[in-house]
Amino acid sequence: MFNTKAVISFLFLLVLNFNFSQESVPNTTIADFNKKSISTDLVLKDGKYYVLSFWATWCIPCINELDAIADNYKEWTDNGIEIIAISTDDSRTKKRVRPMVNGKNWNFKILLDENHDFKRALNIDGIPHTVVTKGKQIISRRVGYSPGGEVDLLDSIIEYKSNNE
């Protein structure tokens, strides 16, 4: 149906000629527990630091990471960093999100990306996946989580802040 060589040549053309990397968070819609849809532009305020942590109620490493962050959340807020945990639970498990967040006593903001529009806009394949931003500007991204990784993440943001402010 399609000419493979043409596809590949075309891609090279694109790659060579364009400004190439996702530098800012695309504007898409996301939900919170009360509102059906909010623009991501309204969530991320200019100049403020955010960690967008993509997770799901069935993802054990995601929960381990968020539990570890919740244990020392004050340290994050003291450094001017807001955690936003973006649940990718679909309609099978979405309803577990609110009880689980309360049961675990997580105090950071939770947003819902039920049909993965935000995840797709950020080209995320697997979770856990964290995106660090200053306002809408993407500073860094990480995939996966190993114990202690949250400390390294916090240190890297503090270092970035001290080098750029």
């Binding site: 309803k95 577990r96 609110r98 009880p99 689980m100 967040v101 309360n102 049961g103 006593n105």
Partner: peptide, 9 residues
């Protein structure tokens, strides 16, 4: 039902 430290669905 939910409150801090408790959630039921």
């Amino acid at each position: 039902l939910f409150k801090s430290g408790f959630g039921l669905d």
